[in-house]
């Protein structure tokens, strides 16, 4: 299946151009200012989103990270008009989500966290009607549905009802459905949860393709590797607020996440008080011949450890330096306790 059938070519870029001509500076894909959502709970209200500020430039590949219950789905719900904000403002592609929800809906595709296919329609009909809701003719919509099902390896399940699908197939159909009407911007709430490695990598390729074509993508995920591999910008949110928002490298630098330097000595472990006193060193652990140093400033540390060993008459059997991972950044920002 040729990729042109899935993506929209320069669709999003054209939209940017035409909007720019009409209204001066191009509004960003998402602008949320002090966005709030308080659910009226049975016993007490739940403040799911508490004054969230977020800007996603057009054409960005944006990742929303955060522990369970951080407010990611609620935020996506508000940006996609499915959840009514209780405070603040949000604009998507220049249109206010509360004042002009139809304008927003025309331009976006959404993959929700739950399996929200239309239960009364077959897989193919789900896609067909998505196209028709967005103004495609019945025949064009059916053709488009066929192409997408083919591309996602679902052609054999086209006449299945949603409840007959496996979890991963269901996700795949939902992703197809979000693409049917060629939206400018895609919201994907944990799109790869429960997907097998093949499908996941396939989806990554597809998302990269869409991004390369000028689409804006906003995705949530708990796979930090995925966020690192795909996203250009990331926001870490917790308890309904943005804790940090930057590029992956920017986050690592800003958080001053620790690099871990590990050295295994063959022989006596040298005296390490000098290392403990080094600038940036947070913690030194020793187990047998193995020494692990957690530091925010790893420059020259490895060499120093080797030299120390040599001076003490020990050779180095193994040495490694682990650069800060997104996981360390994430845990540093959000802490280690469980979320309810």
């Amino acid at each position: 299946m040729p990729t042109e059938s899935v993506t929209t070519g320069s669709a999003a870029a054209d939209a940017v151009a035409s909007d720019a001509a009409a209204a001066g500076p191009v509004p960003p894909a998402v602008r949320a200012v002090d966005l709030r959502k308080t659910y009226r709970g049975r016993r007490q209200p739940v403040e799911a989103v508490r004054g969230l500020d977020l800007t996603v430039p057009r054409g960005d590949f944006f990742g929303l990270l955060g522990p369970n219950g951080a407010g990611k789905s609620t935020t996506i719900g508000m940006l996609t008009t499915l959840v009514r904000p209780t405070g603040g403002r949000a604009e998507v592609l220049g249109h206010d989500v509360t004042a002009a929800p139809v304008e927003v809906k025309r331009r976006i595709g959404v993959v929700s966290q739950g399996g929200t296919l239309d239960r009364d329609l077959t897989v193919a009909e789900n896609l067909e009607f998505r196209g028709r809701y967005f103004g495609m003719g019945a025949r064009a919509a059916r053709r488009r549905a066929g192409e997408l099902l083919e591309r996602f390896g679902l052609a054999g399940r086209r006449d299945a009802m949603p409840h007959q699908l496996s979890g991963g197939q269901l996700r795949r159909v939902m992703i197809c459905r979000a693409l049917v009407h060629r939206p400018e911007m895609l919201f994907l709430d944990e799109p790869t949860a429960g997907l097998d490695p093949q499908t996941r990598l396939n989806l990554w390729d597809l998302l990269r393709e869409l991004h390369a074509d000028g689409h804006t993508l906003l995705l949530t995920t708990h796979y930090l590797q995925e966020a690192e591999a795909l996203c250009r910008h990331l926001a870490v949110i917790d308890r309904g607020e943005v804790l940090a928002c930057d590029t992956v490298d920017g986050l690592k630098a800003a958080v001053e996440a620790e690099t871990v330097v590990t050295v295994t000595y063959d022989g006596p472990v040298p005296e390490l008080s000098g290392v403990r006193a080094r600038r940036g060193v947070e913690r030194v652990e020793q187990a047998g011949g193995s020494v692990r140093v957690f530091t925010r400033d790893a420059d020259g540390l490895l060499g120093e450890l080797v030299a120390l060993g040599a001076a003490a008459g020990a050779t180095v059997a193994d040495a490694s330096q682990q650069r800060p991972s997104l996981e360390t950044v994430f845990l540093t920002l959000t802490g280690r306790e469980y979320r309810e």
Binding site: G9, D14, A15, S18, R107, G137, R182
Partner: peptide, 8 residues
């Protein structure tokens, strides 16, 4: 081609 090619 415009972003919304069909009448949505």
């Amino acid at each position: 081609m415009t972003a919304i090619e069909h009448d949505a």
